[in-house]
Structure formats: C-alpha cells, structure tokens
Design a protein around this nucleic acid. Structure first.
Lengths: 144, 144
DNA sequence: TGTAATCTCTCTAGCGACTAGAGCTTCAAG
DNA sequence: CTTGAAGCTCTAGTCGCTAGAGAGATTACA
C-alpha cells in the first residue's frame, strides 16, 4: 500500500521522470519521503495520477488538468468550470479534426498525382507545394 | 524586385522572426545584405519561402521540408523520396484523425453527462476522468 | 555482514517550431 | 537633418516531456 516511484509508474503507465515533472509543476502534491529521501506513495497519489493520465490521454493540457484537480479538491463548488473545460476541449478537438480532414484530402490528391518514378523536375508533389494554385481545398489557415 | 525582410513577410504571410529562424535552420539560404547589414531578398527566396509555408500548412515538419527542398534543387534525381515523404505525411494525418475521432466521441459522451450546475462531487466529467472504467471508447494509446 | 544489481536522487540540457523582448542600428520620408 | 518605422543580434520562454550525468538508497542473495 506504500510504494516507490517506479511502482507508481508501473501501475499508471506514466514514466518516472514524468511523475517528477508533474510534481514540479504542482499537479501532484509533495509526497512523503523514505529515510533515504526517496519518494513514497499511497492510494491517493495513485488515483490522482490516474486522473491526470486519463485527462492527458484525452488531450487536456496540464493547465486544464490543474484547474480540474483544483475543482476536484473542492467538491462543494459547482462544476460549471469542469464542464466548460471539457466542452472547450471537445471544440478544440473538432476544430483539429476539421483541419486535418482538409489536409488529408489535399495530401491524398497530391500523392495520387505522382508515381514516384519520374525525375524531380516533373514531380507533382513538388509542383503542388511550390504553387498553391494547384490546390483544391482550403488548408491555409495555420492552427496547432 | 529586391526587398527587405518585412516585405517578404507581408508577401508570404510568414512572420519576420520566423523567416530568420528558417535561415538559421538552413531552410532558407544566406541572403544578400544591404550596406547597413540588412537582409535583401528577390524572387527566388520569395518562391522558396512560399514553398516552405505551403508545406508547413500541410503539416510537414521542417526536417521533411529540408529533404523536399534538397530534392527540388536536384531536378534530375527521381522523386521517390518526395512521394514517400508526402505519403508518410498522409498516413500520419490519417492516424491523427482516427485518434482525434475517438477522443471526440469520448469527450462528447462525457460532456453530455453533466449539465454544469451540480456540485463538483457529483460531476460526471470529473468522475469519468477519475475512472477509466466509465469510458466506452478506446482512447488510451498516447500519440502526438 | 558483504556485495552486487537495481532503483532513485538532483540537476542540466535538449526536442520542435516558433514567439517575445531588450537594446541597439539603419533606412526612407519629409 | 530629423524622426519614426523597420531592421539587427542575442537571450530566454513556450509545452510536455525525455535523456543523461554522477551520486546515493534499497533490496536480494550468499
């Protein structure tokens, strides 16, 4: 029921340096230490780290996760912040998907146009990159 | 037909510090300088920067773009490298889309489960993050 | 009790692709 | 000839880790 950082890593799938990094960032509290100054964890830290891991897997930023944890430690507050953060994340995810679909279409079109066995001067991939006019979809606007 | 870095930035939509960064990274050649040591550009640099910009918009890494430019400057080589890079990019894009769709589904489900006006202790968003068992989709594996 | 293997410690630096800012110099217009 | 915008170099910061150095702690087994 009390274990070292390596065991915590094994149980959560989070790497050891990442756990220390989360601690430095304030996402995990300062843990107890052994007589020899090694970190010792229990059930509470295990659960929190699983929470963080899960949220990271879903794409939440560490800042968002901080806010969610803050809320979690104040169970009497209303959870509107949590739902807003989650909805923002959903919106961001949808925006990324839309953008990536446009890129996919364009990349598909470009790669179809070249067999790869001609000389570079005739390469449709290179020509397409050189001349945006050859594009059919709107993939211009930059976004994460 | 000869212009300063600000004009190049305006014509390509690439910010001035980014242009200098590309030069430092070797994506743009070392440009001519004015008597007072300011960069001066012409048509060739304009076209190359548009190429880079376009490839970045499509999600290519600077390393991939370096390879594409290398090929572009040797028009006699076969373009199989270019098509391979583009197809890799297409594959990576499709993988990202697949993953994001799984996240979208899960986030959608989670956010539907909470109206945001209850206390945090009853929040379905927080509960879902705390307990992976509440998930229905497979969003676990981490990837860019 | 000794020793060897494995963990763990702190610290610094690096990744990619920029972005921000300080403090200075040059350019172009009037 | 002055002024204000634009340019210069350099350093450091962003995000979320990851890698490595060199030291100390713990554990298993003889």
């Amino acid at each position: 029921m009390i274990f070292a950082i390596g065991e915590l890593a094994r149980r959560t799938g989070v790497k050891v340096p990442t756990i220390r990094y989360y601690e430095a960032r304030g996402l995990l509290g300062v843990p107890d230490r052994s007589a020899g100054n090694q970190r010792r964890y229990g059930q509470a830290e295990l659960e929190r780290l699983r929470f963080i891991r899960h949220a990271r897997d879903l794409g939440f930023s560490l800042a968002a996760i901080s806010a969610l944890i803050e809320l979690q430690t104040h169970p009497d507050r209303t959870c509107d912040t949590a739902t807003r953060i989650a909805r923002d994340q959903l919106d961001a995810t949808r925006r990324k998907i839309r953008r990536l679909r446009a890129l996919e279409a364009e990349l598909d079109r470009i790669t179809q146009g070249c067999t790869g066995d001609g000389p570079a001067r005739e390469c449709y991939v290179l020509a397409s990159l050189a001349d945006h006019e050859l594009c059919e979809t709107d993939h211009a606007p930059v976004e994460g």
